[in-house]
C-alpha cells in the first residue's frame, strides 16, 4: 500500500508522506505556513493559531492536522493573512514588547512575523500589563513582559530524569511560565543556551550575552521569516 499522499494548498500540488502534518508537508514542498508555538522536534500544540488554514470551510491548525489525500487547503489568502496579523497584534498589545530595548530584537520570531505581515501598529489598545522578571538563575533571565506562553521551553528543556526546567504557574490572565528556582540554579551552560534559542521571543535570555550581533547581521534583518522554505517560483 502506498504511503504517498497528494493534496493541494492554494491550488498547488503537495506530495506528502503518510503521518506528516500539513505544516511539515508544506515545508517539504516549499510552501511556508507561518508558525509560532510550533518547534521542530517537539510535539505540536496548536495553541497560538498562527498556522490556521481553511479546510472544508473550517479553520484548522495546520501544525496539528495530519495531511490526507485529496484535501484542498487555503492558506495564503487575504482573509487568513489578516486573521494571522490580528493574532500577532494581540500578542504585541497583551505583553510589553518593547523591541528597541530587547536583546532578541532581529532574531525574534514574533517580530519577524510582524515584519512579514507588515504590522505598522496594532489595531487593539495597548494593555501595559504589570509583569516582573526573574534573574535568580546564574545563567538565565526569565523576562515575563515578553513571554507569549507558547510552552516551547517547557517541552524542550528537560534534565536527565525528564523533569522540565520551566513550568506554568497560576491560571487565566495571571498565567505565566516560570523557571524552577532550584533547577535554574544548576542549569548547565549548553542547556541554558538551548533554552534561549528555543524561546521564540526575548523571554528567556542567556546572561551576559546581550546584543552580540550587530544590526544588519541578525537572522531577520534582510530576509523575511519563511523565505528559506519558500522556493523560487
Amino acid at each position: 500500500m502506498s504511503t504517498t499522499i497528494r493534496f493541494k494548498i492554494d491550488g498547488k500540488e503537495i506530495i506528502a508522506e503518510k503521518g506528516q502534518t500539513i505544516v511539515e508537508a508544506a515545508k517539504a514542498n516549499g510552501v511556508y505556513i507561518p508558525t509560532l508555538c510550533n518547534f521542530e522536534g517537539l510535539p505540536p500544540k496548536g495553541c497560538c493559531r498562527m498556522c490556521t488554514v481553511k479546510l472544508n470551510k473550517r479553520y484548522m491548525t495546520a501544525c496539528t492536522t495530519p495531511a490526507a489525500d485529496g484535501m484542498e487547503v487555503e492558506s495564503d489568502t487575504p482573509e487568513i493573512n489578516d486573521f494571522r496579523k490580528g493574532i500577532i497584534e494581540l500578542l504585541f498589545v497583551s505583553g510589553n514588547h518593547f523591541c528597541p530595548a530587547c536583546e532578541k530584537s532581529g532574531n525574534c520570531e514574533l517580530q519577524a512575523l510582524a515584519y512579514r505581515f507588515k504590522m505598522m501598529v496594532p489595531r487593539f489598545p495597548f494593555l501595559f500589563p504589570q509583569k516582573g522578571l526573574d534573574a535568580s538563575s546564574p545563567k538565565l533571565i526569565k523576562e515575563q513582559n515578553r513571554c507569549i506562553m507558547c510552552k516551547r521551553c517547557i517541552k524542550a528543556i528537560k534534565d536527565d530524569e525528564g523533569r522540565s526546567y520551566f513550568a506554568y504557574q497560576y491560571r487565566g490572565n495571571k498565567l505565566e511560565v516560570i523557571l524552577d528556582k532550584k533547577l535554574g540554579k544548576e542549569i548547565s551552560d549548553a542547556l541554558a543556551r538551548k533554552a534561549m534559542d528555543t524561546c521564540p521571543v526575548g523571554s528567556i535570555i542567556y546572561k551576559e550575552l546581550g546584543y552580540y550581533q550587530p544590526i544588519g547581521k541578525r537572522k531577520y534583518d534582510k530576509e523575511p521569516i519563511g523565505s528559506d522554505i519558500e522556493v523560487q517560483q
Binding site: 518593547f98 530595548a101 501595559f128
Partner: peptide, 18 residues
C-alpha cells in the same frame, strides 16, 4: 503621521507604565 516607536506604543518613557 506617528513616526517612531514612542509615538506608536509609548516607547522608552512607557517603561514607567507599570
Amino acid at each position: 503621521v506617528s513616526f517612531g516607536e514612542c509615538a506608536i506604543m509609548g516607547g522608552l518613557p512607557a517603561l514607567r507604565n507599570g
